[in-house]
Design a binder for these strands. Structure first.
Lengths: 117, 117
DNA sequence: TCCAATGTTCGATCTGCATCGTACTGTTCA
DNA sequence: TGAACAGTACGATGCAGATCGAACATTGGA
């Protein structure tokens, strides 16, 4: 039940949030966490999203998202469960996550793996 | 009165917008254009913001912002006047520009140029 | 006790992009 | 005509960050 340290939402600046969301992989992760709507572990996210990156890279991205105040991490036995800090983020940046939700993933990002070629 | 080509706001994706806003210089430019609220030329923006970059770099940033649907450019004699596509952007990404406006520039970004050193 | 699974940390590498300088275009004005 | 000005285009450079692999820590089972 140990909580991993995270910044208070009031201290998070929009500059950091925008930088965190500017990366396509991280954007995919955030959308996946939003869709899941519940505590999810890293390896499951990789399976669900189909993103093919190493676990060290995933760990790096998670840290960026955590430092940006976007996700919360909880230790549960062998794994780290993460979830979107939806309420916190919506309180500080109203409409931001809603925007991501309504403007779904870009076609290219979705159709990329199994194309007709 | 020639208008420089710009993307239709409906074709602009949030991925591109987030990438455009992730750069601190471009964020400063957007805020400056928002504060100006009117057609402004590039060299004036540099003066007003105190940003110290070459004109070719400024031109590059303007192109990124234009391609992201955030600004509009108009040719006026010897100079290019730019303005924020406020209504367009607010229509497609409600709350985004409001968010930038309310969450003003980070302290570090403001105090940087004229320090005590 | 040992092993497999999940993540983190750290160093190395590689790529994308911000920046610069130069050359060039187009415009205004003397 | 030519000079000055505003901006673009392009190639080169440097740096930040995305990625990887290996080593390590921790936990849960067999």
């Amino acid at each position: 039940m140990t909580e991993v340290i995270e910044p208070a939402i009031e201290t998070v600046t929009i500059d950091v949030v925008l930088s965190a969301l500017a990366d396509p992989v991280r954007l995919t992760l955030v959308r996946a966490l939003d869709a899941a709507g519940d505590w999810t572990c890293g390896s499951d996210i990789l399976k669900n999203t189909g993103v093919t990156i190493g676990k060290s890279t995933l760990s790096h991205h998670m840290k960026v998202l955590r430092d940006a105040g976007l996700i919360r991490t909880r230790v549960d036995g062998i794994r780290r469960l993460v979830t979107l800090r939806y309420d916190d983020v919506e309180r500080r940046f109203p409409g931001l996550l809603t925007m991501l939700r309504e403007h779904g993933p870009t076609r290219a990002a979705v159709a990329a793996p199994a194309s007709t070629a």
